Computed example of a mutant assay.
Amino acid sequence: MDQATAPAPTGFHLWDPEEDDILVCRAVREETHDVKTFVFAPRTRRRFVFDPGQFLTFEFEIDGETIYRCYTISASPTRPDTCSITVKRVPNGPVSNWLHDHFKPGMTLKATGPMGEFSWARHVSASGKYLLISGGSGVTPMMSMTRAAYDLAEIRDTVFLHAARTPADIVFEDELAMMSRRNRSIRVAHVCESDAPGRSWPGLRGRLSAGMLEAVAPDFREREVFVCGPSPFMNAVRAMLQGAGFDMARYHEESFNFEELSPGEKAEVETAAEEMAPAARTFRIEFAKTKRVVECPEDMPILEAAKRAGLRLPSSCTKGLCGTCKSKKVSGEVEMTHQGGIRQREIDAGQILICCAKPRSDVVIER
């Protein structure tokens, strides 16, 4: 029985965002100069159940605007009374800067989840060997998985490979070293691009390369590989593994990128445009706050049409799973097929996920 389906201990109830989606911040911990961990608990005595590597979607009210963001749970499901997210401050990032500058213990946030397939609980290695590769804040799902293995004293052959800019940017460095010392099935290696002020780096230096991968995990072709980090980092790792003859059926990746339209998304939009049937009806989509209007064919999700027109809107999974693109529909009709990223009461209140909502009339959206 995996963590996602395990029953709550006797005398405890599970946290259910359908009943109460408010989480209370219990602690804020500084991890590095620009990374903080935020620890949450339900308002009542309830426990969290999730697979290590899954994420929560949070609702933020910042400067009068509602913003949705996905954050991977960095805590282990073996400690179910609290959960935590670990957030890196992003230059000009509205949510990360607000969290770092204003969010304190005792404050509350709305959240829903857990969600996601990025977990070794859902992609079990036939060989019993795992390789976790992360860059920057992509360390968080890897930390959740490794913490779970450590807490359960699992003999799970795990290589934890993390890339950082400098040694001052290595998140969870001390805890990873401790877990590696006390559970010999966990091996940790870091790669740093350069030294930090006042601290030189004696380990692997530069950008992650095929040679480094061979040195750290010479048997990587036998392992189940999980990768998380910025899009360019994941693209490079993916190409590296493909070039080395790795079986990509055992490759899994996760990324939440809200600042840019990734090459993959651009390709999806272009492909959708090319494949669009000439006879498809087109509807007018108005974004009320920005006064932008785009044309959207009836067989194209509103998000794709908006991105094709140059609008940069919050999105992540593009599959109706994470809830990041949740928006208020002021008027009009849409057809929406989602995967759990929105609740029925939100739909009843006029909310839609624009990544999987296709217009059936002209639509006005409160964005």
Score class of each variant (00 low, 15 high):
residue 307 K to Q: 13
residue 59 E to C: 10
residue 112 T to K: 15
residue 247 D to C: 04
residue 319 K to D: 07
residue 234 M to P: 00
residue 284 R to S: 12
residue 51 D to M: 08
residue 60 F to H: 13
residue 21 D to R: 14
residue 350 G to F: 08
residue 7 P to D: 12
residue 51 D to R: 12
residue 131 L to P: 01
residue 337 T to G: 07
residue 19 E to F: 01
residue 164 A to D: 09
residue 191 V to L: 05
residue 139 V to C: 01
residue 207 R to V: 08
residue 125 S to V: 04
residue 294 V to W: 01
residue 364 V to E: 07
residue 193 E to F: 07
residue 350 G to R: 09
residue 186 I to T: 11
residue 107 M to T: 01
residue 43 R to L: 12
residue 159 V to P: 05
residue 258 F to L: 15
residue 249 A to I: 02
residue 62 I to G: 08
residue 352 I to G: 08
residue 355 C to H: 03
residue 124 V to I: 14
residue 188 V to G: 03
residue 353 L to M: 14
residue 330 V to G: 04
residue 363 V to P: 13
residue 290 T to S: 15
residue 50 F to C: 13
residue 255 S to M: 14
residue 239 A to K: 06
residue 170 I to E: 00
residue 341 G to V: 06
residue 126 A to N: 05
residue 171 V to Y: 01
residue 208 L to H: 03
residue 288 A to K: 12
residue 231 S to M: 08
residue 138 G to D: 00
residue 337 T to K: 13
residue 318 T to Q: 15
residue 54 Q to L: 13
residue 191 V to I: 15
residue 296 C to R: 02
residue 137 S to W: 01
residue 335 E to C: 11
residue 20 D to N: 15
residue 124 V to P: 06
residue 165 R to M: 09
residue 297 P to D: 03
residue 273 A to L: 04
residue 357 A to Y: 07
residue 68 Y to Q: 06
residue 155 I to D: 12
residue 233 F to Q: 09
residue 76 S to V: 11
residue 84 S to L: 11
residue 198 G to V: 06
residue 4 A to E: 14
residue 299 D to V: 04
residue 215 A to M: 12
residue 128 G to H: 05
residue 233 F to C: 11
residue 60 F to G: 10
residue 86 T to A: 11
residue 5 T to A: 14
residue 118 F to Q: 09
residue 255 S to H: 11
residue 82 T to R: 09
residue 220 F to N: 10
residue 319 K to V: 13
residue 355 C to Y: 04
residue 361 S to M: 11
residue 357 A to W: 00
residue 111 A to Q: 07
residue 242 Q to L: 11
residue 284 R to F: 00
residue 292 R to K: 13
residue 91 P to V: 07
residue 253 E to H: 07
residue 208 L to C: 06
residue 251 Y to G: 02
residue 244 A to R: 12
residue 343 R to P: 01
residue 167 P to R: 03
residue 157 D to C: 06
residue 60 F to T: 07
residue 141 P to L: 10
residue 49 V to P: 03
residue 293 V to Y: 00
residue 241 L to R: 02
residue 229 G to M: 07
residue 48 F to Y: 14
residue 9 P to R: 10
residue 283 F to N: 01
residue 31 E to N: 04
residue 317 C to G: 10
residue 278 P to Q: 03
residue 36 K to L: 13
residue 101 D to Y: 03
residue 41 A to R: 10
residue 176 L to V: 06
residue 132 L to W: 00
residue 351 Q to S: 13
residue 279 A to D: 06
residue 92 N to R: 13
residue 36 K to G: 05
residue 38 F to Y: 15
residue 128 G to C: 09
residue 256 F to R: 11
residue 13 H to T: 10
residue 349 A to F: 05
residue 275 E to Y: 00
residue 135 G to S: 10
residue 184 R to S: 15
residue 135 G to W: 02
residue 149 A to I: 12
residue 54 Q to V: 09
residue 188 V to W: 08
residue 242 Q to F: 00
residue 311 L to E: 02
residue 147 R to Y: 02
residue 137 S to K: 11
residue 119 S to C: 07
residue 120 W to R: 12
residue 245 G to R: 02
residue 206 G to N: 09
residue 146 T to V: 15
residue 246 F to M: 14
residue 50 F to H: 11
residue 130 Y to R: 06
residue 76 S to M: 13
residue 191 V to R: 12
residue 51 D to G: 08
